[in-house]
Amino acid sequence: MSNKQQANLLEVRGLTVDYLTEKAKARALENVSFKVAQGSILGIVGESGCGKTTLMLALLRLLPQAGRIVAGEVLFNGRDLLRLSENDMRSLRWQDLAIIFQGAMNALNPVKTVEDQITEVLLRQNPNKTSAAKRVDELLEMVGIGRNRKGQYPHQFSGGMRQRAMIAMALACNPKLVIADEPTTALDVMVQAQILELLLQLRAELDLTILLVTHDLGVVAEVCDTALVMYGGVIAEHAPIDAIFNAPSHPYTQALLGAFPDHTKPKTQLLSIPGYPPKLDALPPGCRFAPRCSQVIDICQLKTPSLIKVSDGFASCHLLETL
């Protein structure tokens, strides 16, 4: 049977997250729903504070103390992660799901060698030391770090090498889904290119499914299959990247593209988006993007738009409903 349609590895339904602070309750994610096909790379973009990291942490049930998942389902291979026991979730987290945290390359333990840190992760799953030692070599080779350097400490590595070591650690137990939160943001373009190439190559070799958080639309265009554009805790648009870049449906996606520099089109003018993203404790009524939207109509300030099907994907905008 030649079924090109890949099954969904991940399906998120109605995910809603609050942060409880002393003063108030802030809704950081509202009714977030999307599917991710096995073996694909989903880019997650949006301005700072729109909830990208919160979403990733919620999927893995790793939210900080103040965070609460108040509604939703996270179906991984059909199983709802939100209903698993803490124990089952913990073992799944290392075996099937892996995360490379934002700023992770600075999170390696400075007093342990890279080899020891990766070994530790492996022994947690399988206490056989010989097989762990072999696997460390394999993993380091996979991410392009020479064996002769495995006994070194993190400070002896450049930023790019530390990030590779983090990727090796994330891959230690053959995960099916890898979440990478801004894995290249602090790195130089050349090192970024090396890391992105590595992720693409690993995806091809290991059939990984990857969620890639970034605020660089260029990175999304270069490596992702689909993209999720977030704004103020909700999904503005979710579509294959051809649609996102060539026929964006949501005015926010359009505005982001207009503000993003493209060195192949140096003559076009960059257009800023007036105003700032909403504060979670002072959300505007109706559509959250309405106060900054150049195409705003009356209903936008009254009613929250829901995520609807548009030609190639999904978007939440009243203008698309009236079409």
Binding site: V189, E197, A221, F245
Partner: peptide, 25 residues
């Protein structure tokens, strides 16, 4: 040429051949 080839371009139709320099500067 290498530097230009690795600047991500926000246009999926323009996925170019990257000249990736190995190693660190």
């Amino acid at each position: 040429k290498a530097l230009l080839s690795v600047i991500p371009v926000p246009n999926p139709k323009l996925r170019r051949k990257h000249i990736i320099l190995q190693g660190d500067p």
